[in-house]
Write a protein that binds this DNA or RNA. Structure first.
Length: 505
RNA sequence: GGUCCGUUCGUCUAGUGGACUAGGACGCUGGCCUCUCACGCCGGCAACACGGGUUCGAAUCCCGUACGGAUCACCA
């Protein structure tokens, strides 16, 4: 049996380092066993998935040097590799489950479900999850509802007693009582599958032998095992990797740490070094060498060398490792070539020069003027943030509010940035000029500079965000209370709420 | 809160019952090298969460406690 592993990112945001981390381990495991590694796009969430995000994920993983034997761009015998193109397959399989009595139609709407949850919460018995109301519908009742055009979902039947035993390659046997497992929705009312159904159907169809994914999936493993059983399929080996953490130990998130691969690319981390560092997360070479290539990692890879405590993503150590790669592996020629492909090239010059040209008196002015277009982080000088119109708290509020509004932008364009910041000024009831004042030092390190919207656009979302965050932090940061208050105010302003990124593993 | 997973220096980790006076690396720090800085080299600080067992012997095995994390969606 050939080993086949996969990484299955959801194209709902920036390419996440966690995705690369999980991809790396899957890749090494497969390659070491002479097997295949595939890439599958889990875009069943129609409202959040975007083609731009998918493209960035693919190019980021390629940039790192990871390649896949089968995937949406390279094809393969088990395609398509994009779940949105496989809908018919899931609907068919949901029907099989319905026919076998392993699943049931459910007509409960949002209102009833939230009412049910509220009641369960109030009862405080600790028993949560779908109460099984539609489980008792007769075939006639279901047919009648369907005929009447009532929207419905398909839910999985789950035993109400007994234990589910998960065999985890890293942790041994994990037992979870079936009554802790919800009767998961498999097919949404829009006809799309949920992650759980699509994942199981695809892993089986694509002959995945080992599912190596993040620890966050442990508690839904019983649902997956139940599905394999219901279909009569043999489940793959499961292996749950420890999660990458923020310095405060919580799951790595962009609110607290840069998480986008493109950020690390932008600040000048070499792909080899980032991959190397990710390989050092929870794993070590037998000889404890810190620096190694992908080929060396494959050669020595061993699941037994994975430690289970969640590693904190430490940028200081990543920087040190990157420095070693820079000075130990690159000749001056090679370094020059790297710098050229990074930013010291005509393409990038042509992006920033239109902003610079009107401000130049001598060619040499390019030095002081272009510094912030090439730097990573900017040193924060509090004096530059002093404002006649706003107090220190007001300045921080402008920066934080603007940063969050910018986060909500789906496309990072000059117009989008301008629009977002203009509405911030209205929302905070300050003049645009006063709102923007602290953005100049935060983004460029100067009180005045090139046009801020276009400058931020060129710098990119990740770096702009990181610099804004640095500024807020260096100005004393927001207290938990202030942050909560501000976020609440923002939530109140827009009834809806956009939230954090998520990805498979 | 229920369930599950985890716990070795601040951080990444080595360690799979005796070789542990717990090793390496980042960071911090003292020094050397040196026109400065960086690199490099030498040194220092710093950890087995706690309590019970099992054993001749426990960082390593078992139980409990504490702490941390994840998860409880028609998101993945």
């Amino acid at each position: 049996m050939t080993v086949r592993t996969r990484v299955a990112p959801s194209p709902t945001g920036d390419p996440h380092v966690g995705t690369a981390y999980v991809a790396l381990f899957n890749y090494c495991f497969a390659k070491q066993h002479g097997g295949q590694f595939l890439l599958r796009i889990e875009d069943t969430d129609q409202t959040r998935s975007t083609p731009e995000s998918e493209a960035m994920i693919l190019s980021s993983l390629r940039w790192l040097g990871l390649s896949w034997d089968e995937g949406p761009d390279v094809g393969g015998p088990h395609g398509p590799y994009r779940q949105s193109e496989r809908s018919a397959l899931y609907a068919r399989h949901a029907q099989v489950l319905l026919d076998r009595g392993e699943a049931f139609r459910c007509f409960c709407d949002d209102a009833r479900l939230s009412q049910m949850r509220a009641a369960q919460q109030a009862a405080g018995t600790g028993k949560l999850g779908y109460d099984g109301r539609c489980l008792h519908l007769t075939a006639e009742e279901v047919a009648a509802q369907l005929a009447a055009g009532a929207p419905s979902v398909v839910r999985l039947k789950v035993p109400r007693e007994g234990m589910c035993v998960i065999h985890d390659l890293l942790r041994g046997e994990i037992e979870i009582a079936w009554d802790q497992v919800d009767m998961q929705v498999l097919l949404k009312s829009d006809g799309m599958p949920t992650y759980h159904l699509a994942n199981v159907v695809d892993d089986h169809d694509m002959e995945i032998t080992h599912v190596i994914r993040g620890e966050e999936w442990i508690t839904s493993a019983p649902k997956h095992l139940r599905l394999y059983e219901a279909f009569g399929w043999r489940p793959p080996q499961l292996c749950h990797l420890p999660l990458l953490r923020n310095p405060d130990k919580s799951k790595l998130s962009k609110r607290k740490n840069p998480t986008s691969i493109t950020y690390y690319q932008r600040v000048g981390i070499l792909p080899e070094a980032l991959l190397n560092y990710l390989g050092r997360m929870a794993w070590s070479m037998p000889n404890e060498e810190e620096k190694f290539t992908l080929a060396q990692m494959i050669e020595h890879f061993d699941l037994a060398r994975i430690s289970l405590g969640g590693p904190i993503f430490d940028i200081a150590k990543l920087n040190w490792l990157n420095g070693r790669w820079l000075r130990e592996e690159l000749s001056v020629d090679a370094l020059a070539a790297r710098l050229a492909s990074w930013a010291l090239n005509a393409g990038y010059m042509k992006e920033i020069l239109p902003m610079l040209q009107p401000r130049l008196e001598r060619l040499s002015d390019i030095g002081p003027f272009s510094g912030y277009f090439l730097s990573g982080h900017i040193e924060v000088d509090p004096a530059l943030y002093e404002s006649k119109k706003l107090d220190a708290e007001g300045v921080k509020r402008c920066l934080a509010w603007g940063m969050w509004r910018l986060d909500q932008l789906s496309a990072w364009t000059t117009e989008g940035i301008e629009g977002a910041l203009r509405s911030c000024a209205v929302e905070l009831d300050v003049k645009l000029k006063d709102l923007l004042a602290p953005f100049f030092p935060a983004i460029t390190g100067r009180k005045s500079a090139t046009p801020i919207f276009e400058t931020m656009r060129v710098l990119g979302r990740d770096l702009s965000r990181a610099r804004l965050r640095d500024a807020v932090q260096a100005l004393g940061g927001l207290t938990k209370g202030q942050e909560e208050e501000l976020r609440a105010a923002m939530r109140a302003l827009d009834a809806r709420g956009g939230e954090e990124e998520g990805e498979e593993g």
